[in-house]
């Protein structure tokens, strides 16, 4: 029987047994082709968004009235100068998209990290201490969850002056409850496990148990899946820009590009659609990776 248990879940490559849960998830996800494809595309897009603007040597904000509504390269009349064409003010759409992508990625990543930290802390504390602490924290979480993200965001951003910091704050504020809930429930089940109880029996303090015993075991799986939220937050950023409560012009964001383009939809359809396609491609690569990580996590946690 011991042998049976030791030879454990077949899905885990033998060499990887013995490494931390985070490394195991990564290793298992790496074996999925979609993870690698997603990673490659994402890496390319990140590089492009970082290097592109200086390589192409064009300005994202410089207007060029003579070159308004220049079509992208694959349409008749397109030129290599403006690969994705220009908008109603003659600004180059490729540069604008790349900078928009950079901003979106930054906002998405920072806000996800923020909500992960805030939510995990609250979830850990609520799940570990239980009782009244849990009750109070969870009621707050419930209340926070009872406001749809968009409503909270448009309320705050709509009536105040939106800038990257407030946008990130709003996203963190809207996103943490989901993490608090998940971390709380795994903490509660982890808390009952014997190794945690064993540590309590030895006289370890609550902080020690939480940080040293529980957190390293439960947070990596949650953190990996948080990647999916980076994509969600990027969508929110685009929505804010579209409504006009995102980063303010002239800084390009996907939301404003799309919103600007709608006015010229019939004669210059590419202004809206092509940058959006780029965003969708980036989101898709993130989602492919996130999905693969999520599957790897589920396989591992179920196998244990």
């Amino acid at each position: 029987m011991i042998e049976e248990i030791a030879s454990g879940p077949a899905a885990i490559p033998a060499a990887k047994r013995g490494s931390s849960i985070g490394a195991q998830i990564l290793a298992l996800a790496w074996r999925a082709a979609d993870f690698r494809i997603g990673l490659a595309v994402l890496a390319f897009l990140i590089l492009a968004s970082l290097l592109g603007p200086s390589v192409l040597g064009l300005s994202a904000t410089k207007m060029d009235v003579a070159n308004r509504f220049a079509p992208p390269i694959f349409l008749e009349g397109g030129t290599w100068k403006h690969i994705l064409g220009t908008d109603q003010l003659g600004r180059d759409l490729l540069i604008r998209s790349l900078i928009g992508l950079r901003n979106a990625l930054l906002i998405g990543t920072i806000s996800t990290i923020g909500m992960f930290i805030l939510g995990s802390t609250i979830g850990l504390v609520a799940g570990y201490f239980g009782k009244t602490v849990d009750l109070v924290l969870m009621r707050i979480t419930d209340a926070q969850m009872a406001i749809p993200v968009i409503i909270l965001a448009i309320t705050i951003l709509g009536v105040s002056r939106p800038n990257p910091v407030t946008i990130i704050l709003v996203l963190v504020l809207a996103g943490w409850p989901a993490y608090a809930r998940v971390v709380r429930s795994v903490t509660m089940s982890e808390r009952r496990k014997e190794y945690v109880r064993a540590s309590t029996i030895l006289g370890a303090s609550s902080i020690r148990v939480m940080l040293q015993q529980i957190a390293p075991n439960i947070l990596p799986p949650v953190a990996f899946v948080a990647l999916l939220d980076v994509a969600r937050m990027m969508i929110f950023e685009a929505i804010f820009g579209f409504i006009g409560i995102g980063i303010q012009p002239p800084t390009p964001t996907f939301g404003t590009i799309i919103a600007d383009g709608t006015k010229y939809l019939l004669n210059a359809w590419w202004i809206t659609t092509i940058p959006g396609l780029l965003l969708a491609l980036c989101l898709c690569s993130i989602n492919l990776m996130g999905g693969a990580l999520e599957r790897a996590r589920n396989t591992l946690l179920r196998g244990q």
Binding site: I5, K193, E194, R197, N217
Partner: peptide, 25 residues
């Protein structure tokens, strides 16, 4: 405790696990 499988934290080395009470003390 009863359960030999779950009573040991999976993420710490064996030496570290055994040393835990000494560190706590």
């Amino acid at each position: 405790l009863q359960d030999p499988f779950n009573a040991i934290p999976p993420h710490l080395t064996i030496g570290r696990t055994i040393a835990e009470p000494l560190y706590i003390q």
